[in-house]
Structures are given as structure tokens and as C-alpha cells.
Amino acid sequence: MGVYDSLHVKDICPNCHEEIEYCFKTKEFGLSYADYYVGDYVDKADTNYFLQVDDDCPKCGHNRVAYIEIKKGQWIRTLSKETLDEELKRVALMKKIKKVESVIAELPEEWIDVVEDHLDYIICKCTGEI
């Protein structure tokens, strides 16, 4: 079996729709046989990342893949693949919007009315979304 840390999370099985306490196993945090829960500091490094984990539902056997979000070493939340994909798109879009904001902030004042009149178009061109 080996040495693992355990990440405990209650979630709904996407297959049988029962509330399950999953116990995701990982060797990511230093192999200390530790038990972790959402909110715990799991990584001593001050880093941000997503850790992919999986476990089988004890009721129906469905393999549940999840993504543990780590921010500054703390386990913030657990995401499904679909939620992770949406989150990554949202983060990318927010970066593009910040870029648009910084460009607008640097425009000469006489251009502000033109930008305001065409803001939806500008955002669409810069981000690919309205």
C-alpha cells in the first residue's frame, strides 16, 4: 500500500447521487500519514495549484476524479473537472479584462467617449466574450 496522506471530503457521488465521504490518497505533501480536511494547510510551500485526486464511491464503485485547490499552501476547496474548467476560463477572462482596464486607463481623455460608445465591441475583440 505504501505511505500516503489522506484528504477527506464529503461530496455527492455523480453516479449514485449519495453523499459520500471520500478519502483521497496522495504522496504530494511529504508522506506523513496525515489526515487533511478542507481549510487545512497541506503544503508548507507558499504556492497555488490544483491537485488531481481520485477515489471510488464505496456505494456504487464509480471512480470520482476531483481537483483539490491549494492557495498559499491551504486547501481551499474541491472541484469537479467541469467546475475546474469553468474556473480556469473565468481566471483567464479576468486577466484579459484587467488588461483592457489598464489600456483604457492610459488613454488620452479625448478618447474616453469613443471607448465608452464602443466598449462592448472592444471587450469582445480583446477577450472573445461579452
Rank of each mutant, 00 (worst) to 15 (best):
A92W: 00
R90W: 03
Y67N: 08
I97N: 02
Y67H: 15
K89V: 06
Y121E: 02
S80H: 07
L119K: 14
V114N: 06
H62L: 08
I97C: 03
T78K: 05
I70L: 13
Q52P: 06
I97P: 00
W75V: 07
K59F: 14
L79E: 07
K99T: 02
A66S: 14
I68M: 14
K95E: 03
P108Q: 14
Y121T: 04
K59S: 15
L79I: 10
G61N: 11
P58M: 10
E109M: 03
K59R: 13
Y121H: 03
K72I: 02
I76G: 11
L79A: 05
I76Y: 14
R90L: 09
E110K: 12
E106L: 09
Y121S: 06
Q52V: 14
A105N: 11
L79R: 02
S102A: 13
E86R: 03
L107M: 15
K96W: 01
V115E: 05
V91N: 01
V103W: 00
P58W: 11
I112M: 09
E82R: 06
Y121P: 00
I123G: 00
D85N: 11
V100N: 03
L107W: 04
E101K: 01
E87C: 02
T83P: 00
G61F: 11
E87L: 08
I70K: 07
L119I: 15
I76W: 13
S80V: 10
V65W: 05
K89D: 01
V91T: 07
L79K: 07
K99A: 01
I68T: 13
E87M: 07
I68H: 09
I68A: 12
